[in-house]
Amino acid sequence: MRLPKFEYFEPETLEEALRLLAEWRERVCVLAGGTDVLVKMRNGRLKPGAVIALERISSLNGIGFDLRKGLTIGAGAKLSDVTSHPDILRYYPAIARAARVMANVQVRNMGTIGGNLCNAAPSAENAPPLMALGAVVTAASLEEERRITLDDFFRGPGLTAMKPEEIMTSIFVPTPPANSGASYQRISARCGVDIAAVSVGAMIMIEDTVCREVRIALGAVAPVPMRALSAEAFLKEKVWSEEFLREAARISADESRPISDVRASLEFRKQMVAVMTQRALEEAYGRAIKR
């Protein structure tokens, strides 16, 4: 379909972008890679009066790691940069994996991690591992900069906690605690070029075989990426065992709220939440005791 007429801006600084955003408010659309926005504009689901492209704002594109503090990924970092960053590969393999298995080469070369989160699809691949690792995003407006935990970020399909005058600038992920490990698991019908029917991110910290910290996040099984809080509570402070693991996986399936759609049925998704949760926890545990 014909792209509707719109103004196009390519600001070079964040401030300039924020000013444009404040000026255009609801009639504007921020373009961080375009792999979702342009598709929506093409099929007429999105008709912005203006588009602000963030690509030229170099301060948004970096990836930095500090062992004492953690990882800061610029919201404009390309997914392909995330998958190949040495510190991410070493300290955050679950994040690297999520960015690597999603979509296809072309989309990963254009798409950004911030864009994937702001698009707020229930199946957003990067959300579960980031949530499991306690990620916090920074949103900036002309007035302030505020931090939103990823747990509080998603509000519904396509809806986030960001205000219309805000731009996501970065995603911060704390350094994983000692004796912890994380994992990302997904299921889809083919090896690649696919959207996960179910995905799970998990982080676990083990002290003397006891699970001191557990975080489980589920993708594509609710209107938003969600934490499996009951499963986490069940496993916390328990001695790691096959039996508890299976029970945690079962609880996680229970608390998921999937629907049936073209990709999978509700029943299958629930079953897969259990399997993927178990596998994610197992891999996370394996990584935790190795560190």
């Binding site: 083919r190 070029v193 073209v262």
Partner: peptide, 16 residues
């Protein structure tokens, strides 16, 4: 027909 694109029409890829 509900699955009208290659994301949801699951044709195997080279890696399959």
């Amino acid at each position: 027909t509900l699955n009208t694109n290659f994301v949801d029409y699951k044709m195997p890829t080279a890696s399959d």
